[in-house]
Structure formats: structure tokens, C-alpha cells
Simulated scan of single mutants.
Amino acid sequence: MIQKAIVIFDIDGVVRDVSGSYRRAIADTVEYFTNKAYRPTPLDIDQLKSEGVWNNDWEASQELIYRYLAGQGQSREQLQLDYKAIVDFFQSRYRGTDPDNFTGYICNEPLLLQASYLEQLTQAGIAWGFFSGATRASANYVLEKRLGLKSPVLIAMEDAPGKPDPTGLFATVQQLENNLDELSVIVYVGDTVADMYTVVKAREINPHRIWIGVGVLPPHVQETAQRRDAYAQTLLTAGAAVVLSNVEQLNPVKIQEIMLSS
């Protein structure tokens, strides 16, 4: 009997390219709160995220501000940054300033998969859903408005603790699992160390299931072979079973191949 699979996708860097949106908003925010003294490069942001605990981009922005100012001789206790002000500024760039409509960087995110790819999984009997640190509004914008999906299974920022806590992954699985007696293999697809750590922690908490982490290289790290290879190695070290250059390479045949080798 072929064991069934449930595939759960992260969104940012997997479903949509956020190098010119979320990551640009991080850089804008850090630059603003350091009075234009420091604008983090994409590599700076990747290095922070490689620590595996900065999945939330608001918190990542704040941490980069803290680290820069601490490097200038100021202590965190002295600084007392206003987290709400950081979030509001970030959102003004990413979401835009119109409270009723998205007008910011989110409007220009290239899609990294098509709805036809998800239909291919459905036809192969593979259940799928999404677990993301993005806000529900942002996630639904790409899933429903851009991809045209009808009420997909989604656990978003508001629904669970941030990664690498696997609570949200468990909740997504629970929604997708039709027959609780049948222990499907769980494949989680992500582009960061935190995503892979989430799979590792899920395995520790629930070792009776098979949990597989699949890494996807976000577009911004594929500009040079050196950067691509280094990023891929980082994901493998963090627990990825395999690293792909695009999510659509994870087709039904590849999923079976990965399951058989796990």
C-alpha cells in the first residue's frame, strides 16, 4: 500500500517571492529607526534568520535595530524601542497606508506556484494546506485573491505561536486529516531555518508520525551559485530532507520518492 501524504506549505519565499516586499520593508524599517545610519542587506537579513528564531519580520526588524544601536555603544535597556511604532511603520510599507485596501509592497509580489500545481496534488490524492507566520489578511490576499483558492486550510500568525513552535503545524494537520486512524506522512515545505526547526520539534513531540522537512530556495539567494549552495546547506543542516529551487518541483512523483527514502 502506498502511504498517503499531507503537504503543508509555508507561504513567504515558497508561494510568493517576498524579497521585494517583506524583506524590503524590514530594510526600510531598520533604516528609518536608525536615522538612515544602517540599511541591512539581504545577506544581513538571511544571517539573522539563519539563527532560526526570527520568523516574525516585525521582531526581526526590531532585533536588527537593537543590534546596530548596541554596536554603537547603546544598551538595550537604555533604548526601549517602541515595538508598536516599529510594527506600524513596517505595515505602512508592506501593506500600505490605506486601511481598507492593500496598496504597499504586497501588491507586487511574484507568485512562485500556480493553482494548477495544487490541483495536480489533489488529483494524486495528496491533501495540502498552509501554515505561515504571515498575518491572515496577507496570507488570504495571496491565496484567495491572487491564486483564486476557495477557503484553503490556513493557520496564520493570529492562530498559533510563531515558528519554530510546531503548534500551528499540528493544527493544520488536524484540519486536513480526514481519517484519524490513518497516519499520513507529513511534509512541511519552507524556506527558512525556522521552518526546518519546526519539523524537528514536531518529530520530537510526536515521534509516532513521519515528519519530513522540504527546503525551498527563495529567489533572492539564487542570484549566485555560492549563495545558493550556502543557503541550501544551511537548510539541510537545520533538518531538511531535500532542498529544491522551486516549490513546483515537489510534484507527486518527487513526494513519493522523498517518502520512500525517509
Rank of each mutant, 00 (worst) to 15 (best):
D57Q: 10
L111Q: 13
A127Q: 14
V142P: 01
A27T: 11
T135E: 12
A171F: 00
I86V: 15
L149Q: 14
S61H: 04
Y83L: 11
E223Q: 14
I258Q: 06
Y188Q: 06
N55C: 00
L236D: 06
E59R: 15
E119P: 00
K49L: 02
T34R: 05
A230L: 07
I45K: 02
Y83D: 10
Q226M: 08
L112I: 10
L183M: 10
I8N: 06
A37H: 09
G104E: 00
Y94D: 10
R203K: 15
D10I: 03
G190H: 11
I26M: 05
L143Y: 09
I2R: 14
P218G: 11
K84D: 14
M157D: 13
G162D: 02
V15Y: 03
L244N: 10
A241K: 15
A232H: 09
E248S: 14
Q72M: 11
V142C: 05
P99N: 10
P166W: 10
G20S: 13
K36P: 00
F33L: 05
Q222V: 10
A70C: 15
K163D: 02
G20E: 14
L260M: 11
C107R: 15
R227P: 03
G104H: 01
S132H: 11
I65A: 07
Y32C: 01
K150N: 11
A194C: 04
L64Y: 03
R23S: 01
A27W: 04
G52I: 04
S61L: 00
V247N: 09
Q74R: 14
F33T: 05
E177T: 15
V216K: 02
Y188I: 12
N108R: 13
P99K: 08
N56P: 03
S261F: 00
L143P: 06
Q256G: 05
S21I: 04
P218W: 07
L48S: 08
Q120D: 13
